[in-house]
Amino acid sequence: MIQTILDALSYGGLYGLAALGIGLVFGVMRLVNFAHGELIAIGAYLLIVTIDLGLPISIGIAVTGTAILALLMEFSVFKRLRLAEPSVLLIASFGVSVFLQRLYEVIFGALPLSGQIAPWMTGVIEFGDTTITRGSVVTIGLALVLLGGMWFFIEKTTLGLQIRAASSDFHTARLLGVRSNRVIGAAFVFSGVLAAAVAFVLVTQRGSVDPLFGVNITILALVGTVIGGLGSLQGAALGGFAVGTTISLLNSFLGNYRIYTYTWLFILVIIVLLVRPGGLISNKAVKERV
């Protein structure tokens, strides 16, 4: 029972991190970045390829590499589409996503690449009669630290304040002197860092990475972002958390019927978009920039 709850919390934390990464970029430029999954995938690839250098160095490389790729996306593609409508951005990010998937296939091959990243995470901890997995505890800890760090950055720093302002009204933020490219670049960098954290947890659990590694979690995190409220950062993180815990609990309790979890989740997405376009958690509406 305790393990079930811990699993739910760790899934929630993981999906919360992924959803926050998507929500950050959405906030400042109204881009739903399908290619967030490929940021997670490159993080996992970098971890597996460089793990022989030792875990700290490997993590450093993965975080840096993922952040750089996020910035590269912004500079090479999205920066050139500043005036485009959100739906055009959506197609472009779909294109970037497929482009990177195929690029990984060309570089690393279509087959999964295996590696042990942090074997100590797979063990269990015993408390008298109950045992819990180390992985879930570490994931929860990591999620708490990162969400706390992001909260501090967003709420307490000047750049964080500028990101919040740009997320709610980009136009006015610029009139006050907020540098649009700097804020958008920062959002991409932080979404990259969050993607690397998600990659670390996922690749430790699965022990391998393939070109489509990040697709599933991105699609589900997207659900969380919509349910939580596009454009609201707390909403995104909470929405992701809700989706993660729900999936985990359904997996534990529903047995065979869990195969239809996606159906209910995505019907919920459509209902939210129709009835409460601002999300269930946030009270803001999805405003499209003019």
């Binding site: 739903v32 959100p86 739906s87 659900v223 239809y260 996606y262 995505f266 997405v269 459509i270």
Partner: peptide
């Protein structure tokens, strides 16, 4: 009847959700 009440970004995501539902079912 439902989806065409939306436009722009919301329509893109909702129709994507439709694909997910159809695939899952």
């Amino acid at each position: 009847l439902f989806l065409m009440r939306l436009s722009g970004l919301a329509a893109g995501i909702a129709t994507f959700a439709l694909l997910m539902v159809a695939d899952n079912v």
